[in-house]
Simulated assay, not measured.
Amino acid sequence: MIDYISSLDETLQNKAFKTSDHDKNIRDVLAHLYEWHQLLFTAYKVGCVEMKIPILPKKGYTWNELNRLNQDIWEMYQDVSLREIKERLNQSHYETLLIVEKLSEAEPFNKGVFTWTGDSTLAHYIMEHLSLHYEWALNKIKNLLNENK
């Protein structure tokens, strides 16, 4: 995804696209990913390190309020540059991989290892915040580019 973005000229990387969605440029999409990494870090720390039940998706929000959460995330990053958010995302991606590397082979994939994951697995949460979210972001960026040719 980052390679794809880097292959775009700087004008496109910083372009504000015409869309009704809150993600109006590449920075917005990357900021969304970065903040969802932060949500994963919090859930991991509370649920896997402290062995408590984390508030999901985030304190003050329910799963039915993802639109409001994502809008609030968008608002938080409006004064952050694309360069800065790329650096933050790169660092948080690296930190996420460090967490994954610390896990045993069984921990991410077995239900019941961490009480807070309920009927799911830790791998499910990690995939939702990493690979599946990256796929969403890449498709989102490509769609914005195609819709605004």
Rank of each mutant, 00 (worst) to 15 (best):
K24G: 03
E10A: 14
N70H: 06
L69F: 14
E84I: 09
A31F: 11
L103F: 06
S131I: 12
N139P: 10
S120K: 06
T115L: 09
I85K: 03
E135F: 10
M51R: 14
E105G: 07
P57W: 08
V100W: 12
L66W: 11
Y134V: 06
A106I: 07
K142V: 08
E87T: 09
T117S: 00
S131P: 03
L66G: 02
T62N: 13
K15P: 07
F17T: 11
Q13H: 06
L66S: 09
G118I: 01
T42W: 09
S6H: 09
D79H: 13
L30R: 04
A106W: 02
Y61L: 05
N25H: 07
K24V: 13
E147N: 15
E107T: 01
T121G: 00
L66H: 05
E135Y: 15
S92D: 07
T117V: 06
Q71H: 11
K52R: 10
Q71Y: 15
R83E: 10
D79F: 03
N70R: 10
D21E: 14
H22N: 14
F41A: 01
L33R: 08
G112S: 02
G60Y: 05
E95C: 05
T62H: 14
R27G: 12
Q91A: 12
L130E: 07
I26F: 07
V80M: 11
S104G: 15
Q71S: 11
E84M: 11
D28H: 15
W36P: 05
N139S: 13
N25A: 07
V49C: 03
T19E: 05
T96G: 02
E65H: 04
T117G: 00
Y125I: 04
I55A: 12
S20F: 13
D23R: 15
G47P: 00
I85T: 15
S131D: 09
L69V: 09
K15F: 11
Y125L: 04
I85D: 02
L144E: 14
F109V: 13
T121Q: 02
Y4A: 01
K102E: 07
D23E: 15
N25Y: 04
T117L: 00
N146L: 15
